[in-house]
């Protein structure tokens, strides 16, 4: 038996919106301590990893570990039934064939229920090595989102360079070339802060198209954390207050 109730259902709605363009079918792992999922996009370039702790739920019960195979496209359609102020409850029996999703609005007394059919997914689970990232950049999520969006209109690829003084996003395309450079900024206004933690400088190139997809999660968190290592995929991380973390991994583009 699994049951989890989230008071702020909008968070779950946003999570689904933030991953639906990247992954199609996903195994959701239920454990007594929380909910997690890991899935790659069809081209094996990007990976989504979500971890939600039971502590963030108003009510959480999972007697055993369970795997719920879900079509994210269909889950997104069901989530559209939810009002932004709804509480969301997820329910599944042992050996379940469907996931029951209940939307409740205590103010308007409206309740919506949907039984989403589960599917069997034979997905490849990747072991992500523990990595000590040599550059970690914490940046306002709205600002990072805007930088990526605007640069994408100029080039498909961005080169991210870090050093102890700044993080730089540079592009080179048919239009010309240029860069956005952000220095370490720990101003009193928290939302303006850009925090650089660089032990070793990194320079890597990435497809901006994916960054734009990841940035759909910017409404979940005020800050985006970029974790870089010269020999590793980029991690774009969004902390979800009191609930968990949504991470995206992106393989770099490599020069011939």
């Amino acid at each position: 038996m699994f049951e989890a109730k989230l008071t702020e259902g909008l968070i779950l709605k946003k999570i689904v919106e933030s991953i639906k363009d990247i992954v199609t079918d996903v195994n959701i792992d239920i454990s007594p301590s929380g909910i997690s999922l890991q899935a790659m996009d069809s081209s094996h370039v990007a990976l989504v990893s979500l971890n939600l702790s039971m502590d963030g739920f108003e009510h959480y019960r999972a007697d055993t570990n369970m795997v719920l195979g879900v079509s994210i496209a269909n889950l997104a359609k069901v989530m559209k039934l939810a009002d932004n102020n709804d509480q969301i409850t997820l329910q599944a029996d042992q050996e379940a064939t469907h996931l029951k999703i209940i939307f409740e609005n205590p103010k308007t007394e409206r309740t919506t229920e949907f039984n989403l059919n589960l599917i069997t997914i034979d997905s490849e689970h990747l072991a992500i090595p523990e990595t000590e990232y040599s550059s970690v950049v914490t940046i306002n999520s709205g600002e990072f989102s805007k930088i990526c969006k605007e640069l994408f209109s100029l080039s498909e690829t961005v080169q991210i360079t870090t050093n102890t003084d700044y993080v730089q996003f540079s592009v080179e395309g048919e239009v010309g070339s240029g860069q956005v450079r952000l220095g370490h900024n720990d101003s009193e206004k928290k939302e303006d802060q850009t925090i650089l933690e660089v032990s070793e400088s990194v320079q890597q190139q990435f497809a901006i198209r994916y960054l734009n997809m990841f940035n759909k999660a910017s409404t979940l968190s005020s800050f985006t954390r970029l974790c870089l290592h010269q020999e590793q995929p980029l991690v774009v991380e969004f902390k979800i207050d009191n609930l968990g973390v949504l991470k995206y991994f992106l393989a770099p583009k490599i020069s011939d």
């Binding site: 790659m40 094996h44 990747l126 090595p129 991994f249």
Partner: peptide, 14 residues
């Protein structure tokens, strides 16, 4: 010229 790497090159199938 750059080529898009795949995650499989970095992460092991578990």
């Amino acid at each position: 010229k750059t080529n898009q790497a795949r995650l499989d090159c970095f992460f092991k199938a578990g």
